[in-house]
C-alpha cells in the first residue's frame, strides 16, 4: 500500500538498524519509546531519536493504529478495536512492516 507512508531519505543513516523481524499481526507490537509522534493535518510525523530517521504517516487511521498498538495483545486485536475492515488490513500490515524494518515499531513483551 504505497501512499500511506513516506520514508524521508533526507536524514537516514547509511545503514538501517532494522529489526529484521517479520510483523505477524497475531502478535503484540508497540511504538519504539525512542520515537516521537507529531500530529499533522495529513497524519503525523514520526521521528526516531536513535536513527534520526523521519517518517511521514499520510493516513490518520494509520496514526491511530500505530499509537494504539501498545494497548492491545496483538495487531489483529488493534484492527478490531479500531474497526478497520478485513480487506483494508493487509495494506496496514505492510505499512507497519515498513515501520518495523526501520526500528519505529518493536515487538511488545507486555502482553506475552
Amino acid at each position: 500500500m504505497r501512499g500511506l507512508l513516506t520514508l524521508a531519505t533526507t536524514t537516514h543513516r547509511a545503514v538501517d538498524p532494522g529489526s529484521g523481524l517479520v510483523l505477524d499481526p497475531g502478535t503484540a507490537w508497540t511504538l519504539n519509546p525512542r520515537v516521537a509522534v507529531r500530529p499533522e493535518p495529513f497524519g503525523a510525523l514520526l521521528y526516531h531519536f536513535g536513527t534520526r530517521r523521519l517518517s511521514f504517516l499520510k493516513d490518520t487511521r494509520l496514526v491511530d493504529l500505530v499509537t494504539a498498538l501498545a494497548d492491545f495483545p496483538s495487531v489483529d486485536a488493534t484492527f478490531a478495536a479500531l474497526g478497520i475492515a478485513e480487506d483494508a488490513r493487509p495494506g496496514y500490515v505492510s505499512a507497519l512492516q515498513r515501520l518495523a524494518d526501520t526500528d519505529m515499531l518493536l515487538p511488545s513483551t507486555d502482553h506475552a
Binding site: 500500500m1 501512499g3 500511506l4 513516506t6 536524514t11 507529531r38 499533522e40 493535518p41 495529513f42 510525523l45 523521519l54 511521514f56 499520510k58 493516513d59 487511521r61 480487506d87 483494508a88 495494506g91
Partner: peptide, 25 residues
C-alpha cells in the same frame, strides 16, 4: 487505493502550504 476514492493531497501539497512547525531548521 481503497481508502481514498478521491485523490488525496500529496505530502508535497501539504508541505507547500506550510506546517505549524518546521520539520527541521
Amino acid at each position: 487505493m481503497t481508502l481514498a476514492p478521491e485523490r488525496r493531497p500529496s505530502l508535497i501539497d501539504h508541505f507547500e502550504r506550510g506546517l505549524d512547525s518546521p520539520i527541521c531548521l
